[in-house]
Write a protein that binds this DNA or RNA. Structure first.
Lengths: 350, 350
DNA sequence: GTTATTCGTGCAAACGTTTGTATTTTTGCA
DNA sequence: TGCAAAAATACAAACGTTTGCACGAATAAC
């Protein structure tokens, strides 16, 4: 037996005033006198009143829930962006409605449709690797609701875009490898139609060019962002291309390469330098620890949230791109070391 | 300039029928003839109609969004439970509204209040470590909306509870350590008022008892589930208690212990066996790899979702507890090995 | 003391659906 | 052709708010 929930009308009856007064009182409107405001507030909590946001949003024509679509929340980067968004948006009175696209364009479209149906006040989105058409995003802006893109973004649809400084991260990372003596540096990339991987590739190429190293297309491995792909790629590259380093756009494929190298020839492993991207939690834990580019996911989330707040209620949409700085974290995988030196240390101590 | 969104009424006018007919047509109600149903559907998509779920939910008195409160989505376990829930609930036409408590009771309460205000159709919750009073959960069931608890649960409030078989996991893990020769096994636990840690502690004690080992209270370290706590604890234990193994309720404190041991005395490190709990992704990547108890988070999510579907629309609430099986994954950290043996291998190969 | 102004509250419509009931149209059958 | 039954659609109220406007009372200005 479901109990009828207490409404504004119940409170109004209880106090002998009208619903409108109660509504204004609860909203803190100064048009209703302080004494009645206090009375209303007291009886509201006393009766166990929970405002019905559905009704409020319907009436107001806008909702305080913000929709967010990400490829997957179980990724370190995305979950921290979400936390960063929440940290700003929750205190400001907004809720987050989170959907995952699981890297499928169809899921992404469904998620957007669902968010639109739920009349969210704005949408935050980082698109799936599959997504190449953006009509569903245009639909969002056409409906007049603010859209903020982050990380994986497209300039095909107007609005704020918050991105990492991928170019700079890749540049620094590659320069670091070069300084440590590498010349034949392979690059593991994602699909190059995605801005993120494109920009990292550009940074990589630029670093080579600056160092007077000619870019060798046979050292570019596309769609190499998961562990297995990295392992497979490094095996072939070592066999055929005499590489001495790998700059990967993904920590996962870097990890795969690292493990494969260790397995193939423990003695060799330290002589091929490796650096990844994203600074996943495991990067500092593995052996050797993985050099990577740290993205400030939480900060990015904050920026996204602020862009949302700026956009909401505004009529014109601002087509801006904000870059969040990244930082190279140097670890063992990119410094010239030999497994044997570690062992001799062990032997000395034991 | 915000465009007015197209409603059911617009479609009705366009076709010269009433809104009610359009509503029924869109719902696939057979009371409206097939020809009109098709016509409605076509013009609806043609006009770019998006149903207004707010209005629908308000009228129907129930909503198809399910609220979910978790301590943090950036934890492997929770993000995979979420995925498991989504995998069942999304195809069934539900959305997930996810909130994080960040392990704060106050956040948890706020989240629940917000979900109630948004008139979610049901609530899924795993409570924060801080939470010891459960009136906010009682409020949920008093409002007549289904509540499903998972992982960290309380029996103080009725309803389905989906939990891991913590007792069994702890039992197996401790038995494994004992079989490998350990007798003085420390236990890193969380706060024991939480069912999860309580049950694991019971499993640990039971394993000791079965093996005829007396439980030594000085080997129980409470509130030891983060990396630093594990490091600190193991240092003291090694100094004062002559332990030969650690069974930790958390992979993180196990990791801390492992790293500390390696640092303190590389030669010693292999002689103190360590096992963790949760099988975090890093467990298999670190050196030595970490023995742990794998929880089937995705499966748990599925169970949660099914419990939700069973509960929705039902009047009586079923006070059931479902246990999801766990599995011990044996890795290097719990087998007797010496760093030196690895080195000699290296030397042979290089 | 009259007229403006402010203040506090009430009235009623609106937001976009759903749904029980009433009404019209169609169909079947004698 | 007539009439009941069935089918298709229309009507209208309801969900719980918000908010522009109206209204009366109290206060201020002249």
């Amino acid at each position: 037996m479901v109990k009828r929930r207490v409404t504004i009308i119940d409170i109004a009856k209880e106090l002998g005033v009208t619903p409108s007064t109660v509504s204004r009182a609860l909203a803190g409107n100064t048009r209703v006198s302080l004494p009645t405001r206090e009375k209303v507030l007291k009886t509201a909590t006393g009766m166990g009143y929970h405002p019905n946001m559905l009704a409020a949003s319907l009436r107001k024509g806008r909702s305080d829930t913000i929709g967010m679509v990400v490829p997957g929340i179980n990724r370190h980067f995305f979950s921290h962006v979400i936390s960063g968004v929440e940290a700003i948006l929750n205190p400001a009175g907004f809720n987050l409605l989170i959907s995952q696209s699981h890297e499928k364009e169809e899921h992404e479209r469904k998620a957007v449709r669902s968010l639109l149906s739920n009349r969210v006040g704005a949408i935050i989105l980082s698109h799936s690797v599959e997504t190449t058409a953006f009509d569903h995003l245009l639909e969002i802006v056409n409906e007049g609701i603010p859209l903020v893109q982050f990380d994986r973004v497209t300039t095909d649809v107007p609005g704020p875009r918050i991105v990492n400084d991928n170019f700079f991260g890749a540049l620094r990372s590659t320069q670091h490898l070069i300084r440590n003596g590498s010349r034949r540096i392979a690059h593991f990339s994602g699909a190059l139609h995605i801005n993120v991987y494109k920009e990292r590739f550009e940074g990589y190429k630029y670093a080579l060019q600056q160092a007077g190293i000619e870019f060798d297309p046979s050292l570019l491995i596309e769609n190499c962002i998961i562990q297995d792909a990295g392992a497979e790629a490094v095996e072939k590259l070592v066999a055929n291309n005499r590489i001495d380093a790998v700059f990967s756009s993904s920590d996962y494929s870097a990890l795969g390469a690292l493990k494969k190298l260790k397995k193939m020839n423990p003695g060799l492993s330290g002589q091929i330098l490796i650096s990844g991207f994203a600074n996943e939690p495991f990067a500092e834990l593995i052996d050797p620890s993985l050099t990577s580019v740290e993205q400030n996911a939480f900060e990015m989330g904050n920026q996204v949230a602020h862009a949302i707040i700026r956009s909401i209620g505004k009529d014109e949409i601002m087509d801006e791109e904000i870059q969040v700085p990244v930082r190279l974290i140097q670890r063992e995988s990119s410094i010239w070391y030999r497994a044997i030196s570690k062992c001799s240390n062990h032997l000395k101590k034991t």
